[in-house]
Structure formats: C-alpha cells, structure tokens
Amino acid sequence: MAAINVKVNGVDHKAEVEPRLLLVHFIREVLRLTGTHIGCDTSHCGACTVVLDGRAVKSCTVFAIQADGREVLTVEGLEQDGKLNHLQEGFFQEHGLQCGFCTPGMLMTGYEFLKNNAEPSEDEIRHAISGNLCRCTGYVNIVKAYQYAAQKMREGGAQ
C-alpha cells in the first residue's frame, strides 16, 4: 500500500492505495464520485475521461498512484455555484445526449479542448472527440453542443 494525496475538484484527498488501483476506480470507489463512467475498460471509449493537470486522459489507463500530488477535474467539478458550465449548458440546449453514458467523458474532453481552441471548426471538434465513443447521437448534436459552448465562451469569457 502507498499513501497518496490527490486534489480532486479542488479538494485534497488522502488515501492508502494499492499501486495497481486504477485512477477511475479511485475516483468512483474510494471517493464515490460516480459521474466518471467505466465503459470499455480498454482505453477505447473515453467514458472515463478526466482532466489530469490540465490534460484530458482516460482514467482507466492511469494508476491512481500516478496522480499523487496532482490535480484531477471530474464532471462533478464543472458546475460552479449551482450553475452549469457552458459545455454542460450546450449539451442541455442542443440535445447533445440520449442515454448519457458517454456524456461525462465528452464534457471533460471538451473542457480541455475548448480551453485551447476558442474558435474550433466542425472538423477540429470531430477530431477532438475521436477518442470518445457515443452510440446514440451520431455525434451531430454533440458537435453542436461544443459549438454552443465555444460561442458562449467567446461572448462571456471563461467557464
């Protein structure tokens, strides 16, 4: 067992973990933050995407111990003061989800992507979400949700 300290959504969490514990299991089973999903568990689907030190990664393919001393943002950390962030609002307004299973991952991928690209083309958005699988929407409304958020961010600054 090893002691780790991971800041998740702004809060420090200390825990004793086995080195083989995956980050996604730490988030879901130790911290009980079940917004981060496990889909394929083989690094394909992106349902488990979280933002680790500013970069979107698949938390099923990172050990929790690798996150020691680092910062993780999960879907639970997107809402601020009871207000959805622009991307969450975009998914709501543009019907960017049906079953919703891929949504947390789509949101976290978009969080990093839109921070680095304020005016993305449709092509760039589709490229950005190529590691996140959605089996319901056909992606059309997810692209629209990203565009909605990008527009809001350009108008109203951060979030």
Partner: peptide
C-alpha cells in the same frame, strides 16, 4: 496514433 486522449499521456 490512437486518439487525442491517449496522445495526452
């Protein structure tokens, strides 16, 4: 190579 999320790691 792989996808953008994998490429981040």
């Amino acid at each position: 190579i792989a996808d953008p999320l994998v490429r981040n790691q």
